[in-house]
Write a protein that binds this DNA or RNA. Structure first.
Lengths: 238, 238
DNA sequence: AGACCCAATTGGTCGAACCAGTTTCGATAA
DNA sequence: TTATCGAAACTGGTTCGACCAATTGGGTCT
């Protein structure tokens, strides 16, 4: 088994192998030896981690990590890398989604073009097929919601959403494990699509709000006690 | 004069010195020679640029840049590095701010703690002093708005806002060049603060909405023709 | 004109070396 | 015993040179 993702492994290693007091981590040379790669490789990964504000490299001193705070970029990275996320942070992203998407639905009503509607139809069709096959629709759900953001024609908006949507990526499949949930979501998506098509801003907002309420309650329930571990068993209770 | 920020210079260089068709940039060895640094240095910078999705390194082929799209992380980086931002993107961030902060004001009404109010008072006091000194309040403005987001107690929300607030950082001083604008902003900040203190969510929302409308109109005016260049004269007309 | 082949180029990786501050720890002095 | 000081080990920062294998591009042969 080759190490596909040095970045993720390194980040995880640094988190667990750092001095709890100072945050000081093993040296570049030690890390290089531990991972069986050259120092250059380690430095490249550390440069990225530093740019993401995850670690701080102090010349002639050492590498320091602040385990208490994680930046957005860090969260996005972790999602990409498949590292576990704090359930509280997941809930927070859902709350943020609500803020974004309710407004996005309204804006999309006045700005969506035929291209957007075309994409939405494609996504809904794919969703239908997936449900017919008895599968959950994690991927299609994300695409549907992102396309609505895209329809606002605000590039920065879309970029930001793309980044933090990745955060929920690994948890989404669990949410859609329940087939009934997929069916209900799909039905709501269709309603939202129709509201957009009718350019009915108020209705679209209301539908989106109700649609997201489900997910919010779900995650809220999880952080309030009944936390279910998906696959990996190496998650701290935080 | 030493090159303080290789990353920014490299990014700028790659943008201008890439093949318009394929997006292919000079090789690592050429870049190293051009900037007078070792290949390792270039590779480190390229690793960051790649993590930020600004460039793509294809093994045994070359480095490619997609000048058409820039990710959020790229925007944040550019803001940090002091590179010019597309005025359209600035307007888009202002629109996004409206979405975020109106809701943030509402949430803050129910979640703000004494610590938040304390900070807000400090910021308002600093604003007053700055205005009394006849200066614009760029920094205090950002701090005021960020503190409200912080009062929502949603860490992810705060992180994301911190990131893209950096984008407007360089333009903000221009906005507040007009002393009258600083005075008006400050007065509105006080109103918002009082609404938060009274926990009046509806009022806080309304005030925030009106407050941000000014900035939105301002930037909208700029992207619609009358674009004023601040200091640097090396901005492409895009 | 088209198919083919080979040599130059390129990113990926490694290791050794040197520099100049920082840490660490043991020896020395109080 | 405790505090202080100094030297050695360690650390990140940076450079150079080398090798690999796949891609690329130009030239050649058919």
């Amino acid at each position: 088994m080759k190490e596909k993702n040095l970045l993720a492994e390194l980040a995880a290693y640094l988190f667990s192998n750092s001095d709890k007091e100072s945050g000081r981590t093993p040296s570049e040379r030690e890390l290089a030896e531990h991972f069986g790669v050259s120092r250059g490789q380690i430095r490249e990964a550390l440069a990225i981690l530093e740019a993401m504000r995850i670690v701080e490299r102090r010349a002639k001193s050492g590498i320091y990590i602040d385990t208490k705070q994680a930046s957005v970029e860090a969260l996005a990275l972790f999602a990409r890398a498949g590292l576990p996320l704090d359930p509280v942070q997941i809930y927070e992203t859902v709350e943020l989604r609500k803020i974004h998407e309710i407004k996005a639905a309204e804006l999309a009503c006045s700005r969506a073009t035929e291209e957007n509607f075309e994409r939405l139809r494609e996504i809904l069709k794919a969703s239908e097929e997936r449900i017919a096959a008895g599968e959950g629709l994690a991927k299609e759900d994300r695409e549907f919601h992102l396309e609505i953001v895209r329809a606002t024609k605000n590039g920065v908006f879309h970029n930001i959403c793309s980044v933090y949507y990745l955060m929920g990526e690994q948890r989404l499949p669990i949410y859609f494990n329940d087939p009934e949930r997929s069916v209900r979501s799909h039905a709501e998506h269709i309603q939202i699509y129709e509201a957009l098509l009718r350019r009915d801003g108020n209705l679209a907002q209301a539908l989106m709000s109700a649609h997201l309420q489900g997910a919010e309650s779900y995650w809220k329930g999880i952080i309030e006690g009944r936390w279910v571990e998906p696959k990996s068993a190496t998650l701290e209770k935080a």
